[in-house]
Design a protein around this nucleic acid. Structure first.
Lengths: 183, 183
DNA sequence: CCGGAGTGAGACAAAGTTGTCTCATGTGGG
DNA sequence: CCCACATGAGACAACTTTGTCTCACTCCGG
């Protein structure tokens, strides 16, 4: 029967998140298919990683759209965004730490669009007075990626309850990004 | 002349932070030595990675000691700690994402001691009323690691000024960890 | 000046990974 | 029922990386 390529990608992401140097054979076994079939769907390791990147970008952009980051208070938009990104967190953690993606060649333009969307959200929050201005939008974007990765990792290791994922990230990130009330 | 092993480790850390799959030959070239000499100092790739881990643990413990995390307000202790950890951030980022270290075998006990020290600090801050209690010490510890890694990465990529490193991390982390003033 | 220690360069086999191919199976649709 | 198609299993060569070894060179101290 036909193999579900996206299913294969998801199991590959789950495995590579734990062991980034996993063999094509290990990836295939984790997906419950043979190495030959894996190779029929993804020409090689590069193609597999690039497919994972495309999937991650697609999910990120979908989350950005679903969160309607340009509507309402920026803080609420961040909450919606993190909630929307939660299912993709493990995949994002993999891609975020897979620095070899940016090895030499130009990075996928999708990331630039996503970065722009995130940066714009944080900048909007600053301009509306919700967020403090001493933390740059670029840093807040980077920190969001880092916290998503840390959260996914902590959940996978059992150090944080899965249900607390969004709360932990949003509260830590916003607590820092939200301007303090005057004492 | 005798090769400085620690110097080799530092350049290896810098390279592996950018490209975690770098070859022993690449590591040697980055250190300005031959592969043969690299092999004389570190029996193999495993030994090299384990030496990097030991160096990271030693620097972390030194930072924990230097920051005197049990003295004064917990928030100030966190500030001192991040400042003390800044020089080790790139190495920590490498080790944090090098999940293959924990592949199967038991992890180095040093990490347990460091985790305990960090967790105790955050717990102390909670008990003194400085930090909010809805973010668990385990998560704050994880988030600290993640932000250190993100910060090191952002600085390396030029997205954050090196001088802002400590400020960005401390302000974001503490802003979330510090209990809000009553409105 | 000389000897030894440390190094660089390169050769070499062993091991692992990858990409490709073939062949048998079995499964679903016509 | 039967055929086409996707798959699983395995073989195979090519490539990369690794670990080891040898040899020549250099530099420093005695």
């Amino acid at each position: 029967m036909a193999v579900d390529s996206e299913q294969v990608l998801r199991s590959a992401a789950a495995l590579l998140t734990r062991k980034s140097t996993a063999t094509m054979d290990e990836v295939a076994k984790a997906a419950g298919i043979s190495r030959a079939t894996l190779h029929r769907h993804f020409a090689g390791r590069d193609a597999l990683v690039r497919a994972l990147e495309s999937l991650g970008i697609a999910e990120c952009e979908a989350a950005l759209d679903a969160a309607r980051t340009e509507e309402g208070p920026a803080a609420d938009a961040v909450r919606r965004l993190v909630r929307a990104m939660e299912p993709s967190a493990a995949l994002l953690a993999l891609l975020y730490t897979e620095n070899q993606l940016f090895e030499g060649e130009e990075q996928n333009e999708g990331w630039a669009r996503i970065d722009a969307g995130l940066t714009a959200l944080f900048r909007r929050g600053q301009e509306s007075g919700e967020f403090r201005i001493d933390l740059t939008p670029a840093w807040l974007t980077e920190a969001l990626y880092g916290l998503l990765a840390s959260g996914a990792w902590a959940v996978a290791e059992g150090r944080v309850a899965r249900n607390d994922f969004t709360h932990m990230i949003v509260e830590l990130l916003l607590g820092g990004a939200l301007r303090r009330e005057e004492p």
